[in-house]
Design a protein around this nucleic acid. Structure first.
Length: 273
DNA sequence: ACTGGATCCTGACTGC
DNA sequence: TGCAGTCAGGATCCAG
């Protein structure tokens, strides 16, 4: 389930193989993803040069030497790998971006929750991009920002930080881990979090995401990097997936509860309501 | 304006 | 062994 650190890992992994390279062809085996792949994707991309591989929230962006930017979202089961033509495609390998040097950027997505689109406008103006909140690792995501935007909100703090319109790229795993580290109960109302606690939460979100990036992301079900290798952050998870186990701090039993339709894990002792 | 629920999908897992 | 049911989850859409 790729979140920000996983996309960052993939971005770093594929960049050396495709930046500055020319797209020779695009093979689409399955168009029915979350949204249909544009019918003319192959026609539009052929002969373009990828000049930059970027990440915004959980989107991976391929900038080209024309006005076209490819926008990729991996949903929850998507992966991208660099392969060559010796690797035969398998069941859920939906799209191949084939480069003139023989490398292939292969998109696989078991659950088809992801999507591939392109934009001919500046990508910041794209309807999916312009509504995003600040990057959590940027300076603009501050205690002041969190406090002022969460003020008066009657939703849970967990749902709030997972909403990409508020903060971009935090999914269920890192929301759980950040709230645990900050000692904040996931069901607390966003509007009730003090400036002091906002400061602590912002600090913890940045620590958790940075640590996950250095460990190559989290492989819970099927995350793999551009070379087909798993990440290692799952070994550092303090609460996510640890229902009925002992809290790493106080040995209280970790509780699991659905909050905002998502499995939430917390220590009832360390994280006060 | 704001909030929460339904929805898309497949595979792993559980229980009978 | 086989089948049915449940769960995982990002982000959009829609209803209240």
């Amino acid at each position: 389930m790729p979140e920000l650190p996983e996309i960052e890992t993939i971005c770093t992994g594929i960049r050396p193989y495709i930046e500055g390279k020319t797209i020779a062809n695009v093979v689409i085996r399955q168009t029915k993803l979350r949204w249909p792949i544009p019918q003319n994707l192959r026609e539009v991309l052929t002969n373009l040069v990828v000049i930059a591989v970027l990440r915004r929230a959980k989107y991976l962006l391929l900038e080209t030497n024309s006005n076209i930017t490819v926008l990729l979202h991996l949903g929850m089961s998507g992966s991208l790998r660099i392969v060559n033509s010796d690797y035969l495609h398998t069941k859920h390998d939906h799209v191949d971006f084939i480069f003139t040097d023989g490398n292939i950027l292969r998109y696989n997505d078991i659950r088809k929750f992801g999507y591939i689109l392109y934009s001919s406008k500046p990508i910041q103006q794209h309807r999916l991009i312009k509504v995003l909140g600040p990057e959590p690792l940027s300076a603009s995501f501050s205690d002041r920002y969190l406090y002022s935007h969460a003020k008066n909100k009657k939703t849970s703090i967990k749902a709030f930080i997972m909403d990409s319109h508020n903060i971009a790229g935090i999914g269920n795993i890192y929301a759980n881990e950040s709230l645990f580290m900050a000692g904040i109960h996931p069901a607390r109302l966003a509007g009730d979090i003090s400036l002091k606690h906002c400061k602590e939460l912002v600090r913890c979100i940045k620590i958790v995401l940075n640590l996950a990036i250095t460990q190559g992301g989290t492989s819970i079900q099927n995350f793999i990097n551009a070379h087909g290798e798993p990440g290692y952050f799952q070994q550092s998870l303090a609460v996510y997936g640890r229902a009925n186990k002992d809290c790493v701090h106080c040995a209280t039993t970790i509780k699991q509860q659905k909050i905002a339709q998502r499995s939430s894990y917390f220590c009832p002792q360390c994280q006060s309501l």
